[in-house]
């Protein structure tokens, strides 16, 4: 490791830390630790980002390390990529992750392929607010993770808790590969959690068991982990003991965790907020068929958003999204096998 690293700050344990605060802490600590870490994006400076995630960075680190750009996502990713060629570790913000579509080419054709083709690692992080449930409408609510899960060369992280968000973002910044870091905006300020002390790192590519159970496994990630947890508590009252697994990282996927849990409970329900066709549930079903087909006692079920754009009106969005009731109903059906 380069000698310019500062000593990691020995942050004390804190209570009541939100997702926004956790992500900000991760960036602060990494920028403090390593001057090769820079932030780049739209309105991330004086305003502190559309959701205030980068609030305070500019005053502390200056304009050379907190780079405000024109509204030009291709330029943001391209520049981040170019900076990484000189050993920097840029963290690029998409103001809303929906706008990542504007730089899709730059990410999938250049960033993702550089190491494989010509041995050029691209240690950048692309992070931004994603997900629905906040009535943001069709261009501010997307879950575009699967476009990138289908792109070899990238890593895709989608955390569900503040502590994971902080630990995974710090790991992502230190990773030598391009990492897409999705932040569910519904969770930004709605959940608070105790933050472990010190240089808190969470490994990329490892799922977490959120609730142990015997009867049925629910696999999920991001905001739907919380929905699944609520469903699990309701189902517990009905005598169905549900195991909830938070994938945390979608690429690389923790196959071992999936197979182990299915072998234990013999039933699998996948819950995600992404739309159904081409969502990760299909991939997980294939993994289970390849690795634990004979352990299954029932069909692999899925609860997902319907195959439409994210609608705007609350009644429409409610219909579009998975929720606790839909998860409970699907789990109940599956438990009957």
């Amino acid at each position: 490791m380069a000698s310019h690293f500062a000593t990691p700050t020995a942050a004390p344990a804190q209570t009541g830390v939100t997702m926004v605060e956790a992500i900000r802490q991760a960036m602060m600590e990494e920028m403090q630790r390593d001057p090769a870490v820079v932030a780049i994006g739209e309105d991330i400076g004086a305003y502190g980002g559309a959701f205030k995630v980068t609030d305070g960075l500019l005053a502390k680190f200056g304009r050379e390390r907190v780079i405000e750009t024109p509204i030009a996502e291709t330029a943001i990713i391209g520049a981040a990529c170019g900076m990484s060629f000189l050993g920097l570790r840029p963290v690029a913000e998409m103001q809303f992750i929906d706008f990542i579509a504007c730089c899709f080419n730059q990410i999938t054709n250049f960033v993702a392929k550089s190491h494989y083709l010509w041995g050029a690692p691209v240690p950048i992080v692309v992070r931004g607010p994603s997900g629905g449930g906040v009535h943001g409408g069709p261009f501010h609510s997307a879950n575009p993770e699967m476009y990138f899960v289908h792109t070899p060369g990238l890593k895709v992280i989608y955390p569900s808790t503040p502590a994971d968000a902080k630990g995974l973002l710090k790991s992502a910044i230190r990773d030598n590969n391009p990492v897409l870091f999705f932040e569910h905006k519904y969770l930004y300020r709605r959940i608070k959690e105790e933050m472990p002390a010190g240089d808190h790192l969470v490994p990329i590519g490892k799922a977490a068991i959120r609730r142990e159970g015997r009867d049925l496994t629910i696999l999920s990630y991001a905001a739907m982990v919380h929905t699944s947890m609520e469903a699990a508590e309701q189902l517990a009252k009905e005598g169905i003991d549900v195991e909830v697994i938070d994938l945390r990282t979608l690429l690389p996927l923790d196959r071992d965790a999936i197979i182990t849990s299915v072998k234990k409970t013999n039933k699998l329900l996948v819950v995600h907020e992404d739309t159904k066709t081409g969502g990760i549930a299909g991939e997980i079903a294939a993994i289970v068929c390849e690795g634990a087909f004979e352990d299954l006692d029932g069909p692999i079920a899925r609860v997902t958003a319907i195959d439409t754009p994210v609608p705007y009106s609350p009644t429409l969005e409610e219909y579009f999204m998975p929720n606790t009731e839909k998860v409970v109903a699907a789990a109940r059906e599956l438990a009957k096998y």
């Binding site: 981040a80 060629f85 730059q106």
Partner: peptide
């Protein structure tokens, strides 16, 4: 920096190279 068939993409990339060189 390697060429890419999607023309124009290297312009922001080399802008980043230039910015990083200046920063360093």
């Amino acid at each position: 920096v390697s060429p890419i068939s999607m023309l124009g993409d290297l312009i922001p990339v080399m802008t980043g190279v230039a910015m990083a060189g200046r920063y360093l």
